[in-house]
């Protein structure tokens, strides 16, 4: 046990594992941030990720061009989100029901298509995945280089996406309007902000980001699609968004924390952490999120108009 803890490779493995676990959560969580900030609850993140992971794999399989696959994943994510948007914004349906339907659909659709295309259940054949990126210079630094110098591009993209999202939400006029629409749509409309347009944009964006998250699974960390490969990551991403108080950096922190819990769980044998049941580490994100909502650890309060369809005035 002591020898293990003294071994630097353990720490490298821990950081690498944390980043790997956190990346899809960060991307999907940012999607949740945009959608909910504009006032639309998107519990379809899970299903969108799954469909996007599949579509990305499919296009990469046929074109042998993994980046085209990524593009397809993003586009399909946005397309499914568009359905959610129309149902929720135009027809003012229950947003949770719509999200649930999309989640049900995603499992059926990907399973069906997997059999249709590959005549195979369970998983797809290996497909070309996007090549890892190495960061010049940093890669050369001992230990740090091994931790963050070489990763699948999705790791870096997710961090860049956090920075851009934060800039858009808090430093641009679009961001101001998004937040206004999610808090008090009527007030936004009386000053000429198009509530519907902003909400459509944000839901599409959330689909695109969840699509990228899906691509990270099938074309980044793995090079194939597996049935139900999202494994609830869409819901953990939602939890991270809540735990991060609906902000990009907060979501990033929450995802890293949740990813770290996951990494600990994976490495618990090596780390000699067997005294903590791994299941409790897996449960931690959910328990922390409930505690945050209940105000036990820094109350999380959702955007005021989140989940409420908007009716235009007469």
């Amino acid at each position: 046990m002591e020898t293990n803890l003294a071994d630097v490779t353990i720490y490298i493995a821990l950081v690498v594992s944390t980043l790997r676990m956190a990346t899809p959560l960060i991307l999907a969580g940012l999607g949740g941030v945009f959608s909910e900030r504009s006032g639309v609850v998107n519990i379809a993140l899970e299903g969108i990720m799954l469909i996007a992971a599949f579509m990305g794999m499919l296009i990469s399989h046929f074109t042998r061009a993994p980046w085209l696959g990524v593009l397809a994943a993003v586009a399909s994510g946005a397309a499914i989100a568009a359905l959610h948007a129309v149902v929720c914004i135009k027809y003012k349906s229950n947003q949770v029901v719509s999200g649930t339907a999309i989640n049900l659909f995603s499992v059926g659709f990907t399973g069906f298509m997997l059999r249709k295309v590959f005549e195979h259940a369970g998983q797809s054949p290996p497909v070309p995945k996007v090549a890892d990126w190495t960061i010049p210079l940093i890669e050369k630094i001992p230990v740090i280089g091994a931790m963050i110098g070489k990763h699948t591009p999705f790791v870096y993209l997710s961090l860049i996406a956090v920075i851009i999202s934060n800039f858009v939400l808090f430093k641009t006029k679009l961001g101001l309007r998004i937040r206004a629409v999610g808090e008090h749509p009527k007030a936004a409309e009386t000053v000429g902000v198009d509530v519907f347009a902003i909400r459509y944009l944000c839901v599409l964006l959330s689909g695109a980001l969840a699509g990228l998250a899906g691509a990270s699974l099938s074309l980044g960390f793995l090079s194939q699609f597996r049935e139900n490969m999202t494994g609830g990551r869409g819901f953990i991403a939602l939890a991270a968004m809540i735990f991060g108080k609906w902000t990009p950096y907060g979501t990033l922190r929450a995802c890293l924390l949740f990813g770290f819990a996951d990494a600990l769980q994976i490495l618990s044998q090596t780390l000699g952490l067997t005294f903590i049941p791994t299941d409790f580490l897996l449960m931690a994100p959910y328990i922390l999120t409930m505690a945050a909502l209940a105000g036990i650890i820094g109350r999380s309060v959702p955007p005021a108009a989140s989940g409420i369809p908007y009716e235009r005035q007469k």
Binding site: L83, V87, I102, L104, G108, G111, L114
Partner: peptide, 19 residues
């Protein structure tokens, strides 16, 4: 593929939801 049932089920839900 039996998953077609999932698609049918989801379609029903979304139509009922977007009634």
């Amino acid at each position: 593929p039996k998953q077609i049932i999932g698609i049918i089920q989801a379609t029903i839900v979304i139509i009922v939801a977007a009634d």
